[in-house]
Each structure stands twice: as C-alpha cells, then as structure tokens.
Simulated assay, not measured.
Amino acid sequence: MATSLKLPPQLKSRVEAAAKGAGKSPHAFMVEAIEQQVAQAERRRRFVEEALAAEKEALETGEGFNADEVHEAMAARARGGRTRRLKATPWR
C-alpha cells in the first residue's frame, strides 16, 4: 500500500541525517520508526487491558497481594535471588 507522508522541512532534514548515520534510506528509516511506534502502542494497549482485567478480578474475588511482600520479592529477583511463590489473600 502506497502512502504519502508530508514532513515539515526541518523534520525531513533530521530524518535524512539520522537515516544516513544509520546506513539506511530515509524510507527504510521511517518504516522502522513507524513499526516501533505501532509495536509500542500495541504493548501499551495489552498492558492496560491486562491491568483492567486484573483489577476486575481483584474486585470480584476480594483477593490481592501484600504490596510489601511484592516489593521484597521483586527486589530479591532483581538481585538474582530466588523468592517463594506469593499467594493472593482476602483484603476485604
């Protein structure tokens, strides 16, 4: 599908310089940039959908995870350590 993209002169110059520095044509550079933005938008949409589903489940079940335990487990994993499997508990 052919698409025409009109860029402001200053942006066009920047794209041309960046593409040249990357060893790509301006077209290939822009296609790659658009692909990256689309992928990011799709990841963001999935993240929000999953967060909303998790919130709905928590409200329906009345269960959740203790924030302090989650933070401790995340810090331990970041240090390369192992953690026990956390369990959701009632919070109501």
Rank of each mutant, 00 (worst) to 15 (best):
G64Y: 00
V38N: 03
E72P: 06
A53H: 03
E35F: 07
E63F: 06
Q36L: 12
E69N: 06
A67I: 14
N66V: 01
E60Q: 14
T61Y: 00
Q37R: 08
V31T: 06
E69C: 02
F65G: 00
R45N: 11
F47L: 13
E60P: 01
A33M: 07
K56R: 14
V48G: 03
E42A: 13
N66E: 01
G62N: 03
A54L: 14
D68K: 15
E35L: 08
D68Q: 15
E60T: 11
N66P: 00
F65V: 00
E57H: 12
V48L: 10
Q37A: 09
A51Y: 14
E63I: 02
Q36E: 10
R45W: 11
D68G: 11
T61C: 01
A39L: 02
Q40D: 08
L52V: 13
Q40V: 03
E50D: 15
E57T: 10
V48S: 05
Q36V: 07
E69V: 01
E42V: 14
V31S: 01
A51N: 14
E60L: 10
A33C: 05
L59K: 15
E57Y: 10
A41R: 04
K56I: 08
R45F: 13
Q37M: 09
A33W: 02
A54D: 11
G64D: 01
E55T: 12
R43F: 02
E32Y: 03
K56Q: 14
A39V: 04
G62E: 03
A58P: 00
R46M: 10
E63K: 15
A51P: 06
A54K: 12
E35C: 08
V70Y: 00
E60K: 04
V38M: 05
Q40I: 06
E32I: 04
R46I: 08
E72K: 08
V70G: 01
G64A: 00
A39C: 00
E32A: 09
A33N: 03
E50V: 10
